[in-house]
Amino acid sequence: MSSNTDIDALIELMAKLPGLGPRSARRAVLHLIRKRALMLIPLADLMQTVAATARECLNCGNIGTGDICDICKDDRRATGELCVVEDVADLWAMERARVFKGRYHVLGGTLSALDAVGPDELRIPRLRDRVATEGITEVILALNATVDGLTTAHYIADQLNGQCRLTSLAQGVPIGGELDYLDDGTISAALRARKDL
């Protein structure tokens, strides 16, 4: 039997989502309940489906429903350009801008001595393998302009030195900025004006 406890638990769980606090979560849950047939039931069904089928691409780390994501499967994207991003949200931000036509590599974070995150905790070894085996001619380091992002970019540049052209996003991405929060025009301009490291 359902009770307010279930609704309170749903509000608490939704409040843990990024960008939602307790008040926003309460409003969202109330809206979903009021639009039960139109939103709540389809949302619950779709969330169950995604929970069962979503997985990381074995090649690049993107999220999809198969072992290899649609971007990696698309032969038209085998341009020799590989864009390295910190997180899947950054990959999706780059895709929203619709200017990059190559493939991606998701690191899964950045190097951080304070958090004990080293190269082996990230997908840096897999990146080296991809550069060696996939005919990569350019690696674009599209990492967040934070201290950890810059440290990671320099580490990767050292690891791949001489194997391919290494570039980073141009000015326009603010220091301390994160790709997921930038508008499409800024991402587009920064990608077009990338520079050698």
Rank of each mutant, 00 (worst) to 15 (best):
A142W: 01
E134F: 00
D148W: 06
D129P: 07
R130M: 05
A153E: 11
N161F: 12
G135F: 07
D129V: 13
T133V: 03
D158Q: 15
G162F: 05
G135N: 08
Q159K: 14
T137G: 02
V147W: 04
A132V: 01
I140T: 05
Q163K: 14
T146M: 09
G162A: 04
R165F: 08
L143F: 02
A153N: 05
G149P: 13
N144L: 01
L150P: 01
E138D: 10
L160D: 09
I156P: 08
L160S: 06
E134L: 01
E138Y: 12
A142D: 04
T133D: 04
L160T: 03
A153L: 09
I140P: 05
Y155D: 13
N161P: 02
T146G: 01
N144T: 04
A153I: 10
A157S: 12
Q163W: 03
I136E: 01
D158N: 15
Q159P: 08
T151A: 15
N144S: 07
Q159G: 13
E134G: 09
N144E: 08
V139M: 05
N161W: 09
Q163I: 08
D129F: 11
L160H: 01
H154R: 15
H154C: 13
C164S: 11
A145C: 10
D129Y: 10
T146K: 06
L141H: 04
I156Y: 09
E138S: 12
V131A: 05
C164G: 10
E138G: 06
L143W: 00
H154Y: 14
D129A: 13
Q163H: 12
L160N: 06
L141M: 02
E138I: 06
E134A: 15
V147K: 12
E134R: 08
T137C: 01
Y155W: 14
A153C: 05
T133P: 07
I156H: 06
R130T: 07
A157D: 10
T152W: 10
I136S: 00
Y155E: 15
I140M: 07
A132N: 02
Q163A: 13
V147Q: 12
D158M: 14
G162E: 03
T133C: 12
G149L: 12
I156C: 10
V147D: 11
A153P: 00
A132L: 10
A157T: 12
N144R: 03
C164E: 02
V139F: 02
G135T: 05
D129N: 04
